[in-house]
Design a protein around this nucleic acid. Structure first.
Lengths: 105, 105
DNA sequence: TTGATACATCAAGATTATTTGATGTAATAT
DNA sequence: ATATTACATCAAATAATCTTGATGTATCAA
């Protein structure tokens, strides 16, 4: 796979992870502090299996870190991956005014 | 629906639109100029119906504009919506260092 | 007015993502 | 050792998304 396409795939996976409302809620909560799964369960009123599914999803998109402490798993944001996605979008801002399309015949 | 949730829904819809590899390719092409559907078809080697589906998707997420000229539909980026999404991500960058989680019992 | 072109939309099927409830595993407490 | 807690994983069911080919609509050209 060419590396530009590979990049787009990784970028796309990041955006996909951010496309689910529950995952966005998880991220909003993690933006104030690291939390363990059971705390997220309570705060979001969602069952544990469902939460594990979505946390795995976020983790695979590199948007969160996890660390184990005893029997608790603590999740926190991986801000550097947020910067990667932000940068992708920011590059569009620097575009020249979109040129008018040439005639199509 | 509370407006914070409404916002998250709209943000999420934007990220979802950006999560598909073909749609990202469309966006990359539109970042150099406005294009009509048939030009996108050629450049991406994708059938027209499929392209219409994805363009509609991008349009519903406010990521592109479209304008008709004769029998051609020209699509171009709506950069202001890119800024909205960029800003959402940028806000995370300004977070204080994530606090260590309190013990969970 | 007939035909061709550019595009949208639709219905059916294929693929992927999500939810649920059950089970597995490791750490801790008793 | 046994039981409990915190979490991951699995399989089955459901739901959402995507693809394909066919059909519809508007515009333009002959």
């Amino acid at each position: 796979m060419p590396s530009l396409t590979q990049n787009l795939t990784h970028i796309g996976a990041g955006f996909r992870a951010l496309s689910d409302p529950l995952r966005l809620q998880i991220i909003e909560l993690l933006s104030s502090q690291e939390l363990c799964v059971c705390e997220l369960c309570e705060k979001l009123d969602v069952n544990q299996s469902k939460l594990s599914f979505h946390l795995k999803n976020l983790k695979e998109a590199d948007l969160v870190y996890s660390r184990q402490e005893g029997r608790w798993m603590y999740y926190s944001l991986n801000l550097s991956q947020f910067v990667v996605l932000e940068q992708y979008l920011a590059d569009f801002r620097h575009l020249e005014a979109i040129l008018p399309g040439r005639n199509c015949d």
